[in-house]
Design a protein around this nucleic acid. Structure first.
Lengths: 157, 157
DNA sequence: GACATATAGTTAGTTATGCAACTAATTTCA
DNA sequence: TGAAATTAGTTGCATAACTAACTATATGTC
């Protein structure tokens, strides 16, 4: 283990605190201001489908880091809004392939622009090398907690 | 505005992504493993009361960065678990002062130890100066988004 | 003093999360 | 081949978030 084992607990509220919440709220607000009804959680699912359409729900669990019930309900809501549809896999009857509708395809550029704009607002005055440090620290944190034989997010049951 | 306005949108998932979720889940898991029933959200409220007991609900909103309904229900649940009680303010009948019970006072050391331990797991191998950079970037992000005449979290209505 | 405004807190509705328990389909392997 | 184990997805329950609308109390101003 590393050598500085003291009073790091307060750092929880750095990694998972006001800044993260503020960014999420600002992105949601910018979506609404643009007349978009989607939540950022729904957007994060669409984001992965824009990169690769027709993923299974399980694959969406893996990529969005959510559990299966969460994905089930996110897909339910996205389906209600006619942004995706569930299509039975031709090869495995257990699997739903989630496919984007034309309406969802139209959202791609505007929402990604809004995300870029939001992060530019958030990171105003932050240096590139600082961003790189944040990225590498967060990658390290993720590896520390999810690596090896630790709890995985899916298939705990 | 700053000069690097391109493709920062993906950074949303750095600041608000897998690492943050992994840390929250690990802390919750460590609470459960120690036989503690509280959620990390409840813990964050207790945390502020340990620092200063008898805060009003509004003051807890300000300090925990949550809105009033969220605090109402967190206090409801904490009261059910007999960890806090609402006490009418003697000077202003609108105000509830939230006071810790003995049971809550007993949780302080063990939960803070668990938070320290969790963050040590998470930050294994991360250098101090890197942590300082993360802190300063997050402070900057918070200031960028919450400063000036922007949306405040409370009293939007 | 009375009316308008502001503040503290609650309630209702929608979305989302995590856990546990469940069904249905597929794979493993004796 | 057929029973056991695994995998994909859904449902139920509890907690929590945000928005909007509400009640009650306090303050400010004419």
């Amino acid at each position: 283990m590393s050598n500085n084992h003291f009073r790091r607990g307060e750092l929880y509220s750095v990694i998972n605190g006001m800044a993260s919440i503020a960014v999420a709220r600002r992105l949601q607000k910018n979506f609404r201001a643009a007349g978009l009804e989607i939540t950022i959680e729904q957007w994060s699912v669409l984001y992965h489908l824009w990169k690769e359409d027709g993923l299974s729900q399980q694959e969406l669990c893996n990529r969005t880091f959510r559990d299966k019930p969460s994905i089930t309900r996110l897909i339910d809501n996205l389906e209600k809004q006619k942004l995706v549809k569930r299509v039975a896999s031709p090869t495995d009857r257990r699997i739903n392939l989630v496919q984007l509708t034309d309406a969802a395809l139209e959202l791609q550029h505007i929402t990604i622009d809004l995300a870029n704009q939001t992060m530019n607002e958030a990171l105003e005055g932050v240096e590139k090398h600082e961003i790189e440090t944040v990225k590498s620290v967060f990658q390290r944190v993720y590896d520390n907690l999810m690596g090896i034989a630790e709890t995985t997010v899916d298939d705990r049951r």
